[in-house]
């Protein structure tokens, strides 16, 4: 049995106007991974492949130790999947959906379901068509969480939610993670949401994984250096610097593998390092995507 909840290796899928290329992704059990990418980057396609809903053209996919898509039925007993483009039956009540899911899943926990109803502020007798967008997302999360899956796959669940609803959902996800065995893959283009709950971050753009590592490692390694280069001194090209923007004597260098020696190297070249700044995940994401696009374009 594998100790990875999700393992994609060399996965590819070609469409007419989009292709997913050579995707390698590994989510260890008990971890939360944020999958961040701009719209159309391939997040949903990747998730559909790992759910067995779309067959990959190349590569191998294992989820909870099961080969996908061949063993998707066995795997999906322990996967809770919520997607932004997923809808419940509008003419039926939330209670009807709860009964439907309970009739299928032996792990359904009625007490926990009742607790979630209270926490999320939704009522079982409410028809889905009478719920707001935020309440519908909460209803779907309730249906998934109350069956206690080992793996949660959430495809942009917070898209379109107001800040309060987003906060409630993220808080519940954090609570769910108190169960150490549970793994979560959380896709979003909202880096703030991902930053709050993820252990690992994967950036995807134009069908390629451009970076994947521990969240803390990202925050440690990425730095912005504000530099001042006296007239006649050229900024040296240093390893680990992925972007330099210069206006007159002032420059901003972005490092994706920052070590204190980098600042020393600038100083040795006659460039004054004014300030070294930490970067937010959003800034890291944007810099990463731009750097990756420049590399591909070069």
């Amino acid at each position: 049995m594998s100790d990875s909840a999700i393992e994609l290796s060399g996965v590819g899928k070609k469409y007419r106007f989009f292709s997913l290329d050579n995707i390698h992704l590994k989510l260890p059990e008990g971890q939360i991974m944020g999958l961040i990418g701009p719209n159309g980057a391939g997040k949903s396609t990747t998730i559909r492949i790992l759910m067995g809903l779309v067959h990959q053209d190349t590569g191998h996919v294992r989820v909870l130790g099961f080969r996908m898509p061949a063993e998707q039925v066995a795997a999906k007993w322990d996967i809770g999947f919520v997607s932004e483009d997923m809808r419940l039956y509008e003419s039926m009540t939330l209670g009807w959906h709860m009964n439907f899911i309970q009739s299928i899943y032996p792990n359904w926990d009625p007490a926990y379901a009742q607790l979630l109803l209270k926490r999320f502020g939704v009522r079982a007798e409410q028809k889905i068509k009478g719920l707001s967008h935020g309440q519908r997302v909460k209803a779907m999360l309730l249906l998934v969480l109350a069956r206690k899956p080992k793996l949660l796959v959430l495809d942009e669940p917070t898209t379109g939610l107001d800040p309060v609803a987003r906060h409630e959902i993220l808080r519940e996800l954090t609570n769910v993670m108190a169960d150490d065995g549970r793994s979560v893959l959380f896709s979003s283009h909202n880096t703030q949401d991902v930053e709050q709950i993820s252990d690992q971050i994967t950036f995807i753009d134009r069908g390629r994984i451009i970076d994947s590592m521990d969240k803390e490692m990202y925050l440690d390694r990425w730095r912005r250096l504000r530099l001042e280069a006296p007239l006649g001194i050229e900024l040296p090209a240093l390893p680990g610097i992925v972007d330099v923007r210069q206006e007159g004597r002032l420059a901003i260098a972005t490092a994706n593998a920052f070590v204190p020696d980098l600042a020393n190297a600038y100083e040795r070249a006659g460039v004054r390092v004014q300030r070294i700044e930490s970067m937010t995940l959003e800034e890291i994401f944007v810099a990463n995507v731009e750097h990756s696009r420049e590399e591909v374009g070069a």
């Binding site: 039925v73 999906k76 997923m86 809808r87 419940l88």
Partner: peptide, 10 residues
């Protein structure tokens, strides 16, 4: 878009 919900089941 109910199909995605149904196909998330085993």
């Amino acid at each position: 878009q109910h199909l995605a919900f149904l196909m998330s089941l085993p």
